[in-house]
């Protein structure tokens, strides 16, 4: 069985995703530049430049280098950048699945906006590692992961906009 390769996009420290937990007893492999010797230099250089280089460009570069099947986007801030990144991913790398990791304070409208930009699902940062694995697998099978409530709102937007 082919492993599901996952890349994590994070900008804040307040909502770190536990990468080790994701890999434990699962077919998920988290792609991390520090694990790839060839990219050590580039990786550390990018980390030094974070905040100064354009977030979307640098993230897309990382995605191109690591070529993950799934990207977990830690969307703990309601900023336009995440939506722009999703749109860019949707057009440049349509085969890559994007999952938003959100906290409870994010509004439904923002989630809908993110879904309309190409995210395949969203999960809260309080989810257990086991559930994380379940969601990543379901999305890898072509499903989407959203609540029925959000799904209904999305359908209303499709029908009545």
């Amino acid at each position: 069985m082919q492993p599901i390769t996952v890349m994590v996009v994070e900008t804040g420290q307040s909502q770190a995703i536990s990468i080790q937990d994701l890999e434990r007893n699962s077919n998920i492999r988290v792609l991390d530049e520090s694990k790839l010797n060839d990219y050590n230099t580039v990786g550390s250089l990018l980390r030094e430049q974070e905040g100064t280089v354009d977030f979307i460009e640098s993230t897309l570069e990382k995605i191109n280098r690591l070529n993950p099947k799934t990207v977990l986007i830690n969307a703990n801030q309601t900023i336009q950048e995440y939506c722009d990144l999703l749109v860019a991913m949707h057009y440049q790398q349509p085969h890559i699945q994007a999952i938003l990791v959100i906290n409870d304070s994010i509004s439904e409208d923002y989630i809908l906006k993110a879904l309309s930009c190409g995210a395949q699902g969203f999960i809260t940062n309080k989810l257990s590692a086991l559930d994380f694995i379940k969601v990543v697998n379901a999305i890898d099978q072509g499903e989407i992961w959203v609540s029925r409530k959000i799904l209904t709102k999305a359908m209303d937007q499709v029908l009545f906009s």
């Binding site: 879904l115 190409g118 499903e143 989407i144 799904l151 209904t152 999305a154 937007q157 499709v158 906009s161």
Partner: peptide
């Protein structure tokens, strides 16, 4: 107020949502 739709059809909602947007 919820929809009752098969899981295998749900991705179509997002595809349509992206198209509409």
């Amino acid at each position: 107020g919820e929809l009752w739709i098969r899981r295998t059809l749900t991705h179509r909602i997002l595809d349509e949502l992206i198209k509409t947007t």
